[in-house]
């Protein structure tokens, strides 16, 4: 365990330059953005010229760029990302309020995708060039071609309009259902904690379609990678040895082969997660999901740049963290990696 912790610390340290680069990048982005940053921090859209000028001086926008960068770093350190003109709240407050909605959606989708992709990949690899294998390949080929916003709308058409199975595809929970008291912000967890299974059901049914949409999009790379890795592992000597020793097929495949095949799958999880954070924007728009992405998008279209900047920074930070977790998982799945 200490080795794991040391590794985590080391990796976190190693990701600092990239994180610093991200902050500098968003800083530059904000400086070239059309519009005056002073206006973000003003009391409202109707602030007078004198007030804006005062804020400009107070913010140091008349200072040289390197000094501004240092101030910006200080602001981020104290969690000051400006104020949204749309909601009138500090951007940090809005992001904290809305982040659980996005995470609940993304994580559910990831779980869904993994629980479909792993069995599909394994089944395809066990019988290469069979009908099942071709079916999985077709699914993967089509899966990467369907844009998330189209598949989401098609699911709405099929399950809401035609079949009437899904609830009205807007938001996280039916407006008539009672909202559980906020503990974690994850509706499924909060309603379970409150013992309110009515609300849990309402939240879960709202979550199914958007999560499926997102899962469909990342199913293909995960299943493909699982299949390729399993194919490579299944031909190796230790699998033949396992078979020769008379171990059950299930044990050989699910314990010995899968554990080794998981490494490449874990490696692409980082890329998959990056795709999902992007797809999140489209899915939140399609399903009017009140997450951070739709918040940033509304702000972007209203030329309200402080929330956009905060959002980009948040996404990059999450992505750095995810890469760290992926790396640690890699070490857990393959102890040889952590020995180095």
């Amino acid at each position: 365990m200490p080795a794991l912790l040391r590794r985590a610390g080391w990796r976190l340290f190693g990701s600092l330059p990239a994180l610093f680069g991200v902050v500098v990048f968003t800083f530059l982005l904000m400086r070239v953005l059309p519009g005056d940053p002073a206006i973000f921090f003003a009391s409202g859209p109707n602030a007078g010229e004198a007030e804006i000028q005062a804020i400009r001086e107070q913010m140091g926008l008349d200072r040289p760029i390197p000094e501004q960068l240092v101030r910006y770093l200080g602001d981020i350190g104290r969690g000051r990302l400006g104020r949204s003109m749309g909601t009138g709240q500090p951007v940090v407050t809005d992001l904290v309020n809305r982040l659980p909605a996005s995470l609940e959606l993304t994580l559910t989708a990831l779980l869904l995708a993994l629980s479909c992709a792993l069995p599909l990949g394994i089944v395809a690899a066990l019988a290469p060039n069979s009908a099942v294998d071709h079916g999985v390949r077709l699914l993967c080929t089509l899966g990467v071609c369907v844009p998330t916003f189209v598949s989401g709308l098609l699911l709405i058409y099929a399950f809401y309009y035609l079949l009437g199975l899904a609830p009205d595809p807007t938001g996280r929970i039916d407006i008539f259902a009672s909202q559980p008291p906020r503990v974690t912000g994850f509706l499924l967890i909060d309603s379970a904690l409150a013992g309110d299974w009515e609300a849990w059901r309402a939240a879960a049914t709202q979550l199914v379609l958007p999560a499926t949409t997102m899962a469909l999009f990342v199913l293909a790379p995960l299943a493909r990678m699982t299949r390729a890795a399993m194919l490579a592992v299944l031909t190796s000597d230790f699998i033949r040895t396992g078979d020769a020793l008379g171990l059950s097929r299930r044990r050989v495949v699910l314990v010995y082969a899968l554990r080794n095949a998981l490494l490449p799958v874990i490696t692409i999880m980082g890329i998959v997660f990056s795709t999902m954070l992007g797809a999140n924007v489209l899915v939140e728009k399609v399903f009017s999901w009140p997450g951070v992405a739709s918040y940033a998008l509304d702000a972007l279209l209203a030329s309200d740049y402080a929330p956009v900047q905060g959002f980009v920074l948040l996404m990059a930070a999450i992505f750095v963290l995810v890469n760290l977790v992926v790396d640690l998982l890699y070490g857990l799945a393959d102890p040889r990696v952590s020995m180095e």
Binding site: L277, G278, L300, Y305
Partner: peptide, 23 residues
């Protein structure tokens, strides 16, 4: 380093931010 920084963003989100910045 520059490539690492670009890759530290979820790419679609970066594209959104760039369109916002460039107009």
């Amino acid at each position: 380093r520059f490539v690492d920084v670009l890759m530290a963003f979820p790419l679609f989100v970066l594209a959104m931010a760039l369109v916002a910045a460039l107009g």
